[in-house]
Amino acid sequence: MRPAFLAVEGVDGCGKTGIVAAIVNHLASHGIDVLATREPGGTHQGEQIRSLILSGADDAWDPHSELLLMTAARVEHVRRVILPAVASGRSVVSDRYVGSTIAYQGAGRGMSVDFITGLHAAAVGDVWPDLTIILDLDAGIGLSRSRRRLGASNVDEGRFETLDLEFHRRIRQSYLDQARISPDRHVVVDASGTPAEVLDRTLFAIDAWNAQRQHGSSLQLNFQGGT
C-alpha cells in the first residue's frame, strides 16, 4: 500500500483506540511503515490543548472557543506530524480528525458545518484523510461504555460524556451523513458485537479499500463484515 492517511471516527465508547492499535499492527505486519496518532493531541501543543478541552464542566468553553482550540491543535498536528510522515513515505492512522469536529461542534453544538469546513480550509488547508473509518454504534451503548471506562480510570477526559444522550445521537447521525455525502472517502463499519468481530470487519474493509484504490473504484457505504 502506498502511503495513506487514515482516520478512525465514531461516537464515544465505540472502540476507536483499540481499533487504531490493531490497524497499525496489521499494516506493520505487511511491511508497511505506519504511525499511530490522535486528536486532539499528536504533538506537545495538541496534548496540552487536549487536557484543556476534554476536562472539566461542559460550560468551561464557549462553542466557538472550543472549535478554535480543536482547530489550533489540528494545525500543529497536520504541520508537524501528518504531512511530514506521509511525505517521508509513512502511512498515518489517526484516532479522530476533522470528522469529529463536524460531528461534535457541528451537529452536537449546532455550529455551521460550512463555517467549520471553511475554517479548516483556511487554517489547515485541503488536508483530508484518504479513508475515514466510521465505527458505527448505538449512541446509548457507546456512552455507557465510555462513562464506565472513565469511572474506572484516573483520566479526566469526560467533558463530552457529561452531555445528554440526544447530543451523542446527533454525533452518530452526523458521521452517517458524512459517509453518505462522501462515500468514496468513508467506510461505515458495524461496531456492535465482540471486539474480535469489529476488528475483523475493520481490517477486511481496509484491505478491500486498498485493493479497490489500486483500480480507482470506490467502496460501498456500509460494511457489515468480512467473513
Rank of each mutant, 00 (worst) to 15 (best):
F167L: 05
M70P: 12
A72I: 00
P129Y: 01
D62G: 01
N210I: 14
D130Q: 00
G89E: 07
Y97N: 00
D207M: 10
H44E: 15
E76P: 08
L52E: 09
R147Q: 15
H77V: 01
A60M: 08
L165K: 00
R38N: 03
L52N: 12
L119I: 06
A152R: 10
A73W: 11
R149H: 07
G151M: 04
V8R: 02
R201Y: 06
Q48R: 13
D136S: 05
R50T: 11
G18S: 08
L137S: 09
E197V: 11
G42V: 03
P63Q: 00
G125F: 01
S88Q: 13
S51T: 11
L135F: 12
W128L: 15
L27Y: 11
G56Y: 06
Q105E: 07
G158V: 04
G193R: 09
S174A: 10
D138S: 07
S146G: 13
P63G: 03
A85E: 03
L83Q: 13
L221G: 04
I19R: 06
L27E: 13
I171Y: 10
A121V: 05
G56H: 05
F223H: 15
A191Y: 07
G151C: 01
W61A: 03
A205F: 09
I23V: 15
S65N: 05
H44Y: 13
V78K: 08
A208I: 12
N210F: 15
G56L: 09
N222I: 14
S51N: 14
H215F: 14
P3G: 07
W61F: 15
T37F: 07
L163N: 14
G15A: 01
S218E: 12
V198K: 12
L163H: 14
V34T: 13
Q105S: 00
L83M: 06
V8D: 00
H64C: 06
D164M: 05
R172E: 01
R147H: 15
T202D: 05
P63A: 08
A28F: 00
G158Q: 06
F223S: 10
L6S: 11
N210G: 14
E66Q: 08
I134L: 13
A191L: 01
W128E: 14
A205W: 04
L27P: 10
G226H: 12
W61R: 01
D207Q: 08
A107W: 07
D130M: 02
L219W: 08
L6W: 05
A123V: 00
A21N: 10
L143S: 09
I19C: 08
G225P: 00
I116A: 05
V24Q: 02
A122N: 09
S217K: 13
V24H: 03
W128R: 15
D136K: 07
T202E: 14
R172C: 01
